[in-house]
Amino acid sequence: MTEKERKNRYIFSFVLLALLLGLFGVLNLCMGSVRLSAQDVANALFYCADTPAGDILFRIRMPRLLSAMILGGALSVSGFLLQTFFHNPIAGPFVLGISSGAKLMVAIFMILSLRLGNALNSWTMIAAAFLGAMLAMAFVLAVASYSGRISVLIICGVLTGYFCSALTELFITFADDSDIVNLHGWSQGSFSGINGSNVRVFSIVILFSVSAVFLIAKPMEAFQLGEAYAVSSGVNVKRLRICLILLSGLLSATVAAFAGPVSFVGIAVPQLMRNLFKTEKPIIMIPASFMAGGVFCLFSDLISRVVFAPTELSISVVTSIFGTPVVIWMMLKKQKEVKAWD
């Protein structure tokens, strides 16, 4: 591919992503378990009528589709950061035990708060999930600054996951059946409980985080060549590592806090984008992953809402169903290419 061809590919792919975002955004707005006629939609959009249709559109569907877009993008970028960190395309945001930490803290809060008599406030639950995720991540960070070895970190992440799960099980023995059901429901992940003010809060956090990620795009690219080469280029590798984990953790903790754990997006989407754009340059991959993560989650959310309406499929089920074959197919394709070069 020449440089010109490459540039064209980038432009084409970004335009494609933008179109898909638009398309699924509109579809998610117009489709749902409630049938809204075109007339209803038009009235609500143009006359801002205070109709039930308008409420459904703007107070249920709109926050939901914005969540899918923004949180999906965040997960995807988080995955890309980790894959850069681990020099491994299979790394994902929840492989470091971050979602287990979030679940543990939610379980603790759920049980404590009912015991103390007050029902769990939605902001408390969000704070709990976020706190749990960040604590798990802080632990991983501590290990990372002590030993930069990647195998150590992966083992640490897996162990954190097991440890948090075990503690969660322990707390569950003191829980009522309804707590257990609620916790199980939460850990399936969902974009549905989100309202306008939630959207405002996480949008700001994610905007801030993704901007910060752009600032480390350049050292990330050097890091992709390997640590030694990165150092020789003048990159402060230790600081970069911390930034990668911190930002990745912040992004995925935010998602876990508002939507629960949503699996596969962080792994499948960046991989898909690498294949689409045929590059792994961070300055391209960051916006590409963000947009594609949004598309993927919008699509998955649409499926989860519509297929068994009026009941809803858990979002993780859908993302896993669609994510797995894609990743397997790509891995097989890669294997074939590798063989060809032997």
Binding site: G32, S33, V34, P52, D55, P310, T311
Partner: peptide, 15 residues
């Protein structure tokens, strides 16, 4: 019982 989406509940129960 069955768990339905928020918007379905809205549609059927808002009135």
């Amino acid at each position: 019982s069955v768990t339905i989406q928020s918007e379905s509940f809205y549609e059927k129960a808002h009135a």
